[in-house]
């Protein structure tokens, strides 16, 4: 297995709009090892689209062009839809923002995990799949897995739902996990808990993680490296522990505009967007 898990070169995504195409992602290149990579940006910066392009779940009307997109030695640009489908869920998993919308509302959560397991291994006996589902619920620190197994999504709290989602995604031990705002819908106290579970699983199982978020501080606490995106381009790549050394005015602006508990009460500095940030970068 190579050290580089994912390599993307010059990814472009555009959507048809009235009178032409509008570019959503404009030349993103990145590589990921077995590490935690954060992608940060505002809504519309193209961060989620980048993750979705890697999975191959963009809507059919999206125009994608990419020079190179490789996942663990597999050329994704040449891969058949069937192969990509088998990668999804199996070797690549995705955790979405809101468990309320991502779980099937009329199916017990345990059975949803069992379904995920048996899609991966159709010959696995039911009893064995049930056992695995209970074990993975325990692995995401759910105290009473038997009880939670037979609950419906609406009976779960947000944090619990998100842990079920994570359980469903890690149960097949993917090599790559894409987490798209996995904690934005959660309370701060629960957020820390969910993040540490995610951290534990990713580290222990040696996965690569792409963590998409709009929260720069959260990402920097949690990831190894951070990519900052603005208007479909990468403006800066940083080591997470060196966030304060960010040089791009956009990154600095994002850091400055957050209020803090002990911060000054003067008006918050507002991002002054500059047209030059939109220009193509070398």
């Amino acid at each position: 297995m190579s050290d580089t898990l994912v390599e993307i070169e010059n990814l472009r995504i555009a959507f048809p709009r009235e009178g032409g195409m509008s570019d959503a992602v404009r030349g993103v290149s990145l590589s990921l090892g077995r590490e935690k990579l954060g992608i940060v940006g505002e809504s519309g910066s193209g961060k989620s689209l980048t993750g979705r392009a890697l999975l191959g779940v963009l809507p059919s009307y999206a125009r994608i062009s990419v020079d190179k997109m490789v996942f663990d030695g597999i050329d994704l640009t040449a891969a058949s839809p069937k192969l990509r489908r088998s990668l999804r869920g199996g070797r690549m998993g995705m955790i979405l923002q809101d468990p309320k919308f991502s779980l099937n509302p009329v199916m017990r959560v345990g059975l949803q995990i069992v379904e995920a397991i048996r899609i991966g291994d159709k010959k696995l006996p039911k009893r064995e799949a049930f056992k695995q589902a209970l074990a993975v619920l325990e692995a995401v620190h759910i105290r009473d897995p038997e009880r939670v197994f037979s609950l419906y999504p609406h009976e779960l709290s947000g944090g619990m739902g998100q842990r079920v989602m994570i359980a469903m995604m890690v149960v097949r031990e993917p090599d790559l996990l894409i987490a798209d705002e996995p904690t934005s819908a959660l309370d701060v106290t629960v957020q820390t808990q969910v993040l540490s579970i995610l951290d534990e699983l990713v580290t222990r199982r040696g996965m690569g993680l792409i963590f998409i978020s709009h929260d720069l501080r959260l990402v920097s606490r949690f990831c190894d490296r951070v990519i900052v995106m603005y208007a479909g381009q990468i403006v800066e790549t940083l080591r997470a522990d060196r966030l304060n050394e960010a040089t791009h005015p956009y990154t600095r602006g994002l850091l400055a505009c957050l209020p803090t508990i002990d911060g000054p009460l003067d008006p918050l500095p507002v991002l002054q967007r500059q047209a030059s940030w939109l220009e193509a970068r070398p």
Partner: peptide
């Protein structure tokens, strides 16, 4: 809202 927009709205509310 995005954090960058949050700052604008909070400033507006204070004003």
């Amino acid at each position: 809202l995005d954090v960058s927009i949050q700052a604008e709205i909070l400033n507006l509310l204070n004003q």
